[in-house]
Write a protein that binds this DNA or RNA. Structure first.
Lengths: 339, 339
DNA sequence: ATGAAAGCGCTAACAG
DNA sequence: CTGTTAGCGCTTTCAT
């Protein structure tokens, strides 16, 4: 018998009865203590303590309508890029004494929808989401119903939705230019499905740069679609690259986790980096510079991204704004070699 | 004028009016569609659609009492160890069609308390928490009020609370034995405050092993307390270690993020690893084996940890159980050198 | 300073 | 099969 039978939670009227006051007074003690005489206040507080009373948030909210909570949905909580963004959000929300509910859609639209619904049902102030689909109609609907919506890591395709993003085309283009400058004429791109906007944009950026430099993307670029945007995906993708008849001399990865898998696979196959295969990542996560072969990567202002998103969410005037940050290529040995 | 004035959310009675039925019927089509004739059901559904009606979760919950949502509070969402655990939780919860609300306490008891309160107020089924304090009385209180509580990464000190943990003493002891085997007689330990249980336990494990091997911890061990358990903390700690009069020959880090900072600092100071300083991490995160100097680290079954925690949370019999997993030392070059 | 009472949106009896 | 109604726990006028 290790469990105490959990008796019903004490309610405000239990407290009122015990303190011999009305429920209104208990409510006042809770919300406007100064409207209550010290003596009764003490009595009520004692009763609250005695009964281990915790106000029922649902009831409170049902009356109040909204709460100081915001929701965020990212594609994958175990991807450092997203968690750094989440930190940025949290830090900004904390300033305003808001709390963050974080969830991950796992890139699945159904999961995204489910969390969205959960958040809405519970009356969050607003929601920041990295959409799992190119389509954002469901988010516009949400917005029309009065929820604050901020698209994360994705420029809004419509002017009714705020967004905070990084210019992915520019980031990928910078990486491509860097590789071509280095003499690479055949580049593999380990990318996710184009239904994920970052993936589509980075692909487009690569194309842009190649064309601009006078190369034919159809020849110079081999895009390989991987199922999961993590180290396992990178490994699988790299195995495919290595099996290619005309092997590329450089591999661009859609993120650093993927690059990690690529690096691992290349090492296992005894392909030297960068002489046998140059590798570029994306995100410049904490460990990128500390790897066996320090990774050239596209740095994104993750923390700022989250911070700004929360800023928009909290904006008193509810302005709608599309913010775009510029990424920055960080060159390291995985493309330039030692020295 | 980009913003549509967000009019009041439609309620069930708005739907009822529009569909010319009673609220009870609307509720029925929502919850027991078969109790309603197809014709009226259609009419109600149309009205729901028309008004973009979303049931108010607070009201529903106020009636129902509880929801299929669980909360988790970890110390830091941007630490891969915790996010891997979170993934394990999510994966298990999803099987049961539950949703996860994730929050991070940032090691601050006030933040932990705030989220706990938020979760409780919103009637979550239960909560999984990596406690920010050694004291768990507040969690017992929660439990007594009927919430499921599972301690994460921390054995329960009381038999009324379930817990899922990894034997930290054993993990740290294994690392220490490895170091002593290698001939190290003076070891620095970059650790967090002992108020965090993992930190206290790992310190104890180190002591245990040293004593067992005939060394005097007072001489062989220099414990340095770092403020933040991440790369920055590791950097600051390592700077202190390097300034020590009698410099240790090995540094044990409380986690891999800290080790990352240590490695970075050693490199900047031109101290070779492991010949000038051996380094051991903890957690064996994804990138540990891929670093410039692959990191010897203590592997924990993170995903399992989360999975099992969620298992206990969902247990139909509400059993109370303390689960302990064993960690495993993964030896790499940061202690043994090349080859 | 305190109490009484209405009502937030919903579900679950209970009638019909 | 559908309507009516009593609360769930709380906040908030409005009286006193």
């Amino acid at each position: 018998m290790t469990t105490t039978a959990p008796r019903r939670r004490a309610s405000i009227s239990d407290v009122a009865r015990q303190a011999k006051v009305s429920v209104g007074t208990v409510s006042n003690v809770l919300n406007r203590p100064d409207r209550v005489s010290p003596a009764t206040r003490e009595r009520v507080l004692a009763a609250i303590d005695d009964l281990a009373f915790v106000p029922n948030g649902s009831a409170r909210q049902l009356r109040a309508g909204t709460i100081t909570t915001a929701g965020a949905i990212v594609l994958d909580v175990s991807n450092p890029f997203f968690t750094d963004v989440a930190r940025g959000i949290e830090d900004r929300l904390e300033e305003a004494d808001y709390t963050l509910m974080l969830a991950s859609s796992d890139e699945k639209p159904e999961r995204e929808a489910r969390y969205l619904r959960l958040f809405e049902e519970h009356g969050v102030q607003g929601v920041m989401v990295v959409p799992a689909t190119p389509d954002v109609e469901h988010l516009e609907t949400l917005r029309a119903r009065g929820l604050r919506v901020v698209l994360l890591d994705r420029p809004s395709p419509v002017d009714t939705l705020s967004s905070v993003a990084v210019d992915d085309r520019a980031g990928a283009a910078a990486a491509a230019r860097h590789l071509v400058d280095l003499g690479h004429e055949r580049i593999a791109f380990l990318n996710g499905p184009h239904t994920i906007r970052q993936c589509a944009d980075r692909s487009a950026g690569l194309h842009d740069a190649l064309v601009e430099l006078g190369l034919d993307p159809a020849e110079a670029l081999v895009e390989i679609t991987i199922a999961t945007l993590n180290a396992d995906g990178g490994q699988a993708g790299t195995e495919q690259v290595l099996a290619l008849a005309q092997r590329p001399t450089a591999t661009m990865c859609v993120n650093d986790l993927t690059a990690l898998g690529a690096l691992r696979t290349l090492r296992a196959a005894d392909v030297p980096v960068p002489s046998g295969m140059a590798v570029v990542g994306y995100d410049d996560v904490t460990f990128a510079g500390e790897l066996a072969t320090p990774l050239t990567s596209v740095r994104q202002p993750t923390h700022q991204l989250g911070h700004r998103a929360a800023d928009l969410l909290l904006d008193p005037d509810d302005v709608v704004e599309q913010v775009t940050f510029q990424p920055e290529l960080v060159v390291r040995e995985s493309t330039t070699g030692v020295g």
